[in-house]
Simulated assay, not measured.
Amino acid sequence: MVRIDASTNVEELSKALRTLVSKQLPFALALTATRLAMLVKQGELAVMRERLDRPTATTMNSLYVKVANKSNPEARTFFKDAWTSGVPADTYLQQPVKGGRRPHKRFEKALIARGIMQPGQYAIPAESALNQFGNVPRGTIMKILSGLGAAETVSGVQANATGSKRSKRKGNADRYFAGDVDGTQGIWERKKSAFGDAVRPVFIFSDGEPGYRVIIPFYKIAENIVKANRAKEFASAMDQSLSTARG
């Protein structure tokens, strides 16, 4: 009979396990953080689809995850803060996320700088001017600014309507005007029809500062998702890191 007593090796085994766990812990923490960030992204997108009015593909593709690594076990879920053109998502989604009063948009600042709108006023889009996503198209806004002489100068090229033949063919200066129609101040578009000439509102000037309620409680959603999944994701990540550990 051969008797084998392994008790003398318990301390060595315990030390080896502690070393293995310690070595694999940074990987497990980074994997946990990354998986939680991905779950947060999925949860945020689900709420955005449900609560935003006709969100564009750009808006729905604006949420990103920065993965964690062993040297920096912190992952992030965030709105992209820069685009090749246009307003970045982390700017125009501030109101749905945080609520409160909204600042003047670039379009409104241009109108104010030109003296077309008062500093305390805001330009509210008319329902008839909205596209399928509930926005006034950027192209329309640029035509309005050009027609009103409030377009920005980019790289030395003036975008405002002028008296040139090319500019007159575009017709922006004749098509749009700012003023008071039947007691309502705003920006108007001249329309021709079989019944004669008419005007329709594109933007109405409001003296009240627009306020927004929180539509997407971004931080609370993230907190709840992390709380509900942290323990499970850490256990799974630790199992994976130990099972793939190199000897």
Rank of each mutant, 00 (worst) to 15 (best):
G115E: 09
A151I: 03
G149W: 00
S155L: 13
S146T: 02
P119C: 06
S128F: 07
R138D: 13
M142Y: 11
G139C: 00
L148I: 13
N135P: 03
K109G: 00
A129F: 04
T140M: 10
R138V: 14
A126D: 04
A126S: 06
K143C: 10
I116L: 01
A129D: 04
L148R: 07
P119Q: 07
E127L: 04
L145M: 06
G115L: 11
R114E: 12
L111D: 11
A113C: 04
G134I: 08
V136S: 10
I141E: 08
G120W: 13
K143M: 11
Q132E: 15
P125I: 09
G139V: 02
T140V: 11
G147C: 07
G147K: 05
I112V: 12
I124G: 11
M117W: 01
T153D: 14
T140A: 04
P137H: 12
R138F: 12
A113I: 02
G139N: 07
A110N: 05
A113G: 01
G147I: 06
S128Y: 09
I141D: 04
I144G: 00
M117V: 04
A113M: 02
Q121C: 02
G115S: 10
F133V: 08
R114P: 05
N135T: 04
P119T: 07
Q132Y: 13
A129T: 07
A126N: 00
I116G: 00
L130Q: 10
K109H: 00
P137A: 10
R114A: 15
A113W: 05
E152A: 14
V154W: 14
E152Q: 12
G115K: 10
M142E: 14
A151E: 05
Q132L: 12
N135W: 02
A151Y: 02
M117D: 02
P119H: 05
R138K: 14
I112K: 04
Q132F: 12
P125K: 08
G147Y: 04
G139T: 02
S146K: 01
A110I: 01
Q121A: 06
A126G: 05
I144C: 01
G139K: 06
K109L: 01
S128Q: 13
Q121E: 13
S155Q: 13
L148A: 09
A150L: 14
L130Y: 10
I116N: 00
T153V: 15
A151V: 06
S128D: 12
G139F: 01
N135M: 05
G134N: 07
S155W: 11
Q132R: 15
G134R: 06
K109E: 05
S146D: 02
S155V: 12
I112Y: 06
T140I: 11
A110V: 00
G156L: 09
Q121G: 07
M142R: 14
A123P: 11
